[in-house]
Design a protein around this nucleic acid. Sequence first.
DNA 1: ATAATAATTGCAAACGTTTGCAAGACCGCT
DNA 2: AGCGGTCTTGCAAACGTTTGCAATTATTAT
Lengths: 354, 354
Amino acid sequence: MIGPRPVTIKDVAREAGVSYSTVSRVLNGYPHIHPDKRRRVLEAVDRLGYSVNLQARSLAGGHSQVIGLIVHDLGNPYTAQVVQSIDEALARAEYELVLHTTHGHHHKEAVYVDILTRGMVDGLMMLIPLGPTPYLQQLHERRFPYVIICDHQQYDDFSPTVSTTSRQGAYDVMRYLIALGHRRIGFITGRPDFISAAERLEAYKAALAAYGLPLDPALIYTGDYQYRAAYTATNALLDLPQPPTAIFAANDLSAFAVYDVARSRGLRVPDDLSVAGFDDVPQSAYMHPALTTVRQPLLAMGEAATRLLMDTIADPSRPAERIVLPTELIIRESCQPPAHSERPFKPSAQPKGE
Amino acid sequence: MIGPRPVTIKDVAREAGVSYSTVSRVLNGYPHIHPDKRRRVLEAVDRLGYSVNLQARSLAGGHSQVIGLIVHDLGNPYTAQVVQSIDEALARAEYELVLHTTHGHHHKEAVYVDILTRGMVDGLMMLIPLGPTPYLQQLHERRFPYVIICDHQQYDDFSPTVSTTSRQGAYDVMRYLIALGHRRIGFITGRPDFISAAERLEAYKAALAAYGLPLDPALIYTGDYQYRAAYTATNALLDLPQPPTAIFAANDLSAFAVYDVARSRGLRVPDDLSVAGFDDVPQSAYMHPALTTVRQPLLAMGEAATRLLMDTIADPSRPAERIVLPTELIIRESCQPPAHSERPFKPSAQPKGE
DNA sequence: ATAATAATTGCAAACGTTTGCAAGACCGCT
DNA sequence: AGCGGTCTTGCAAACGTTTGCAATTATTAT
């Protein structure tokens, strides 16, 4: 790289006729500066087009104004949305974003955490679908500011987290389906090693139990949040001697697969088969019929996480706050009472354990 | 931030019984090192769990191993896909990614370029839908490695670029539609200030002209690549006294809006209205009917751009390479010959100006 | 006026690394 | 044994900034 030597703090100092430490202090909002010199410095900065070298600032013990974000997979809309809102919130707070994707390789997390927290960033946000890990303990002990974003609530007790009531969301879907009169509800799970998948499965079972419905293991098919697996799952479910009248897919993408299988078999949604998803990705509203699903407050999650991290950076020893954001059942067109039910099933007024 | 002082190169040196410069050289693959010392250093690194401080390395004139990526908007699937593939390619090359979104604010680009190229990154990638700008000229003069990614080809003559034959792609759609027998083809444009939008509009007109079809301005409706505008556009198009038999939307998202409007009016796609999109976002294959569209090689674009940037970093004065990747017409189910055409229109064997 | 206090400033050290330079060790030759 | 050369190695300077310390100057209270 060639060309004009970048202008440094010393150039500004010379131009303004002050020492370079004064320039630094002006730039960092240090209180006791003579107004006259402050003005001269600011003018020189402007004239020379100076901007700070973040590496040097960070090395010298200042802040880097950079936040690290580690995500599991950029490819799905869920992540993309959260990342976007974090990015926007961070931009407002004048922070840069260093993005790291583990591409599903769990073991890379620790490596990235190590690289990033080694002076490169002022704080860390992690959007990972798995449970607590040893490096969080270290981070906590080092008082390094970080925030966990997840869609499940089960976590350690020292990490600041932003999560959603997604377990409740899954429960809500089930309650809705049951209230419509469905008694055989198929469930396509998420990727089993993700805690969110386990939580939704739990909710499925809990709702069944609460309303006194039998749990038929044949109705539960293990997916992985991807289209392919859900496609297979749906076929298996519909091939059952006693197929379900409704299918609850652990995420919207899986629900799309249910749509397609239904269509390929000449089944109409919702007339012949009710379908519910989870996440409310933008596409879900455009599908036909529009998908009934659970909305996760993705934008709010990113914003809350950013705010939480900013607070933690401001005071690294503040107690870990845990923000839980509400999910919302979005009722659209993909569910109706089952074809051959005489009347919608009325759940008892007060189901146990809700 | 508290806790154990991070282990530095000096700690490693002490542990291995060598000088710290030797450690640095080992770590940077310097050739003339005694095998014995190299081993001792590597062992010490392992034992102490050392990893380099990128700020310091970068400050001292080394490489930061960080690449900056400036995108216009993370929210759309197009960008998300390209970013993902860049991220993967970069990870393979052992680079970090600093991501910047301008959120559509054109003027922020220059600011981000300035911040990032000020030592923070070794190279820059820009995914921006607009034309050449002054800061590119500067970057070029400074010999700072950068790559432009765009889906249009018109650019300056010194910037390394990765682009697609998207103009040809639009032309292909039109040729296909015309070959099916459509004579009144509606066009919903992209955001007018994006060059890609202008290129596609040009292609639309060029195809019409090449096949001797009249250009009816009423059939061209200005959109902005978003759902909302396309929805309005479709309604306007279908309200025409002589509505089109096919609609070509400048991107898939807009095509989805066409689907919905058609549905809301009781029109069947493709029986009553043919629809074609552009981009081939993943969702397009799942729609019903599956959308005929133009696939942009998003993954290949990310990879090519990364490779190009790596090459440029290795030799900053190499001549600007321009990679043009082919688009591909993906014929699915959303188009068929118009309802009332007696027979498919046969374009002359050799249309002019193709 | 004078002492005490507060505001303002500059110097120099530090942050963790890379790298030019020079010195020492080692090699194969004659 | 002595010479020129190539390997290895360590020292020290540099990268651009922040910040503790001490010195200087302005302000206030007595």
